[in-house]
Computed example of a mutant assay.
Amino acid sequence: MSQINRQIQLASRPTGEPSVDNFKLVELPLPELAEGQVLVRNHYLSLDPYMRGRMNEGKSYAQPQPLDQVMIGGTAGEVVASRNDYFKVGDKVVGMGGWQEYQLVSAEQRGALQKVDTTHIPLSAYLGAVGMPGVTAWYGLVKIINPKAGETVVVSAASGAVGGAVGQLAKVRGARAVGLAGGPEKCRQVVEELGFDACIDYKQHRDLKSLSAALKAECPNGIDGYFENVGGMILDAVLLRANAFSRVAMCGMISGYNGEPIPMQYPQLILTNRMKIEGFIVSEHMDIWPEALKELGTLVATKKLKYRETVAEGIAAAPEAFLGLLKGKNFGKQLVKLI
Rank of each mutant, 00 (worst) to 15 (best):
D48H: 07
H120N: 14
V190Y: 00
V153F: 04
Y226T: 00
G160Y: 01
I315S: 02
G97W: 01
A214Q: 04
G231N: 03
P184T: 06
Q189I: 10
P18C: 11
V190R: 02
R241T: 12
R308W: 00
P122Q: 08
A244R: 13
E295N: 11
G140R: 02
Q37R: 09
N146G: 11
L67C: 10
P220Q: 12
I223S: 00
Y86K: 13
W289K: 09
F23A: 06
L39W: 04
Q103D: 15
E185A: 05
S2Q: 13
G279Y: 03
S156G: 10
G160H: 02
N56F: 08
Q204C: 08
Q7F: 07
E27Q: 15
T75I: 03
G98W: 04
R110T: 15
P31Q: 12
G324I: 08
E284C: 10
S60C: 06
E108I: 03
P18V: 05
N229F: 01
G174Q: 14
A242P: 00
S124M: 07
C187K: 02
A149L: 12
T136L: 12
F331D: 02
D201P: 11
Y50F: 13
P263C: 12
A292H: 04
R176E: 07
G164I: 02
F196V: 04
W289M: 06
L25N: 01
L240W: 08
E218W: 03
P66N: 12
I72W: 09
R308M: 12
V311K: 08
K209W: 09
Q334Y: 06
V105W: 03
A165C: 15
N221H: 13
S12Y: 06
A76D: 04
C219H: 13
G225I: 02
V230D: 02
S106H: 10
D91R: 14
K148Q: 14
L169W: 04
